[in-house]
Computed example of a mutant assay.
Amino acid sequence: MELFNKSGALIASVLVMVGALIACQAKEDAVPPAPVIEAVAQKLSVHGGAAAERRLREWADQGSVVAKRELGMIYQSKTQHRNEAMRLFEEAARAGDSESAFQLAEMVRTPRGDGADGPGRAATLYQQAAESSHPKAALRLASLVRGGEAAAQPAAMK
């Protein structure tokens, strides 16, 4: 009986997701609300699927900050998509998304050798996220400053 309930719940959630995607396809120019985008991203990260990734890409191209963040989070762990993830996080962070600023800071914290990344840039991004009440960003910023890793400390921290 318990197995039936779990599989029934899985089937119901898949049907809801398919219905949401169909509804969004009916309104090609409409970007759905954040919870729908996040649900599509969650399904994509769990089950994969070219259609879901394509839909997220379309919403990101239409300017959805949430779609940019979610697509960046999916690309973040894929080496071949690292630069794309950073670009998406950068765009979303500039639009005020604190989670994107935090994720980008996590990516740039360790320098890659080109001088553009590192603790100084990470500190600036952590501060941006922390100012929007992102608790992990505030902790990471304090850790960078306390450890002296942030040579170019954010103005508010000097």
Rank of each mutant, 00 (worst) to 15 (best):
A30K: 11
V36A: 09
L56C: 07
Q103N: 14
S132G: 06
G49A: 10
D97P: 01
A122F: 05
M1I: 11
P111R: 08
G63S: 06
A60W: 04
E38T: 03
G49W: 04
R82P: 01
K136Y: 03
L144S: 07
Q127Y: 03
A123C: 09
P154Y: 08
G19S: 12
A85K: 06
Q103F: 08
P35R: 13
A155W: 11
K158I: 01
P154R: 11
S13F: 02
E91N: 04
G120M: 04
Q80S: 10
E2D: 12
M17N: 08
L44H: 05
S7I: 02
Q76F: 13
C24H: 03
R82S: 10
E58V: 15
L125R: 06
H134R: 03
V65Q: 09
A155E: 07
Q153M: 14
M1V: 15
P111V: 03
R121P: 00
L15G: 13
G8D: 00
R94G: 05
S7C: 08
K78R: 15
E53K: 14
S45N: 14
R55F: 03
G120Y: 01
D61M: 09
K68F: 03
A138M: 04
A9N: 09
M1K: 11
F89A: 01
N5E: 15
V18W: 10
L3H: 10
A41I: 07
A152E: 12
S132M: 13
D29M: 12
A93I: 13
Y75L: 10
A122L: 09
H47F: 14
A50G: 01
T110S: 11
W59F: 11
S7Y: 00
S143V: 05
V40M: 08
A92G: 03
H47Q: 14
A93Y: 05
D97E: 13
F102G: 11
L88W: 04
Q80K: 06
E99C: 09
G19I: 11
T124S: 15
P35H: 13
E84A: 14
A116D: 04
A67W: 02
L21H: 03
A130L: 03
P119Y: 15
V36E: 04
A138P: 01
V65M: 09
L144T: 08
A67Y: 00
L44S: 06
F4C: 13
V36T: 09
E58H: 15
E149F: 14
R55T: 14
E106D: 05
S143T: 12
E38K: 15
G8R: 07
A129P: 00
A155K: 13
A52L: 12
D61S: 11
K158L: 11
Q127N: 02
I74W: 10
T110I: 15
L10I: 10
F4M: 12
E90D: 13
F4R: 13
R146P: 00
R94W: 09
R94S: 12
